[in-house]
Design a protein around this nucleic acid. Sequence first.
DNA 1: TAGATTTGTGTAATCGATTACATAAAATCA
DNA 2: TGATTTTATGTAATCGATTACACAAATCTA
Lengths: 340, 340
Amino acid sequence: MTEKTTIYDIAKELNITAATVSRALNNNPKISQSTRKLVLETANRMNYKQNRLALALRSGKSNNVGVIVPRINTNFFASVIRGIEESLHPEGYQVIICQTHENENREIENINTLLNAQVDGILMSISNLPDENNHYIERVVQKNIPLVFFDRKKEIKHVSSVTIDDYQASYQTTQHLLEQGCDKIAYFSGDRSLEIYEDRYRGYEKALLDNNIPINKDYIITIKSNVVEGREAVEKLLALDNPPNAIFSTSDFAALGAIQKLKEHDIKIPEDFCVFGFGNEPFTKFMELSISTVDQSPVEMGKMAAQVFLDKINNVDKKKSGKTVVLMPKLLIRQSSTRI
Amino acid sequence: MTEKTTIYDIAKELNITAATVSRALNNNPKISQSTRKLVLETANRMNYKQNRLALALRSGKSNNVGVIVPRINTNFFASVIRGIEESLHPEGYQVIICQTHENENREIENINTLLNAQVDGILMSISNLPDENNHYIERVVQKNIPLVFFDRKKEIKHVSSVTIDDYQASYQTTQHLLEQGCDKIAYFSGDRSLEIYEDRYRGYEKALLDNNIPINKDYIITIKSNVVEGREAVEKLLALDNPPNAIFSTSDFAALGAIQKLKEHDIKIPEDFCVFGFGNEPFTKFMELSISTVDQSPVEMGKMAAQVFLDKINNVDKKKSGKTVVLMPKLLIRQSSTRI
DNA sequence: TAGATTTGTGTAATCGATTACATAAAATCA
DNA sequence: TGATTTTATGTAATCGATTACACAAATCTA
């Protein structure tokens, strides 16, 4: 029939109790071989499937993990989720996804919904939660639910995080551009109230200072991660009295927009101008003029975030420690910044 | 403390029963204003959060929906999932994602896990489930759990589906290439045991026949969706005595590989050779030679699949009908196939 | 063979929320 | 005022699985 089979149905069928059925199904040692065999056969015949909801309610363990991202259909986040799913699936966890659209209310709402759903852990890339809302995060910690930030993190006590070394990535990229002979490097920044963008900015700044190059504020432009803003930023830069000869963009999309616009101005890349992106979006490799960029190993990052969660779940002793994992970024030096 | 507050805790605090608390929280009319106010305040003060697991167990409704895709980190599937999430979130459903990696065992396993988790519906893009395993699908139907295929579907009784009109897309694309003056059109096919690829092939074939152009079997190559296979296929085509002057690739990635290889052979696109892709991957637009392609409106497709699920859930009367939605594809005619 | 031990099942509580039914108290009516 | 209706609350079952505890039967020991 259409109804679901429960252990009670099996029990009635065999004229035993549900407890015995449960024991047989769970390989409990206190059960006779004959009964176990009978139960297993009957369960199979009646097409029994364990109701994980009931199990979850009793055990207090849902075997679900929530993942919160700004938006799922970007290569980076989709890849992180892939990594998470692949690490968690073999351990019997399922992944619930939530999007915030960079909206802090959605972020709070998603956290609450996940808590209500009794998830065993939350992995998230924070949108832009102002500090006054930190208590929503702290509540998760208080409930002893493992929380792991990936990529976009926030310094909160007892919260783990997995990121790449954004400072290093940025420092090395700037250094690379300098070595290519670019001495006037413009910088496209993201919202610096987010740690990753602040770290990247510091890496850029430090590399310039280490090379005795003063910071030119006109070269620093805050953009959103899309093609149009990259184009617009280039217009501004080219209108300067002393325009730059390189751009380090913390967004691949903006880097692409920049390249388009530079070409329209008949500026030769990389001969006259170098461009470096960030994120290793698939298209950067495919372009005829391939775009140099920083690879963030998103799948690895997802796997690592999942691993940090699993370690926490499995070591109840180390109750309130937060683990910080920093992955090394990989500079992918391609045509857009290679002057040979 | 770290413990969770339940309605029993609130009841004890106020010296009433859990039933009354429940009624107050659910705006049950049979409750006095004063009690309701008191309960609400106390719940708030004690930071009460409803345990959705308990609710789910009692009501038989988990408010979770499972989504099964081959792989989440492709633009198409990530976008569909985005659409699904955005339609389902306002209705109070959460989305559980599963990947199959095109593996039929994983597909079956995922279906079973979702059923055990008591999901209220399953939305999936089928991998390559052979017919002898149809009963795993039919079991879902039997349990009266709404099942919706998107993109990659299978004809199974009572199962809904949302697809684009692959036949039309393919027919129109072929027609377009003919109009551009290409009379020798090669075709990169996917695995034709999947309906979508069979439909696309039929569209291609029909357009040629309608224009009195015989099918040349040498022009038809089955590929996997990646750049390398596109390159290799072009090598084969160019080695023919009578090579083609256009390619219609059912994969954008293969189309890109084809373009790369054609350029290496100094063949001019679109003057000497036209290329048309399928899927509207982001990079197709960004290329210096932008690639013509078919847009499948994945976000729309996801939203529609979610809507079909919601309609089914909300109309219990129409118990076992399957709804079939066919979206119109959009041809994006770009430089790679535009001869002025 | 009486007593101790082992083995296999049953009983009933539990997880947290909802709700049909019962019932006491309050309000309304005649 | 006594009967009737309304209102608010309590009681207890339910969803499906697990498990501490109890206990009867089987097996072992001396």
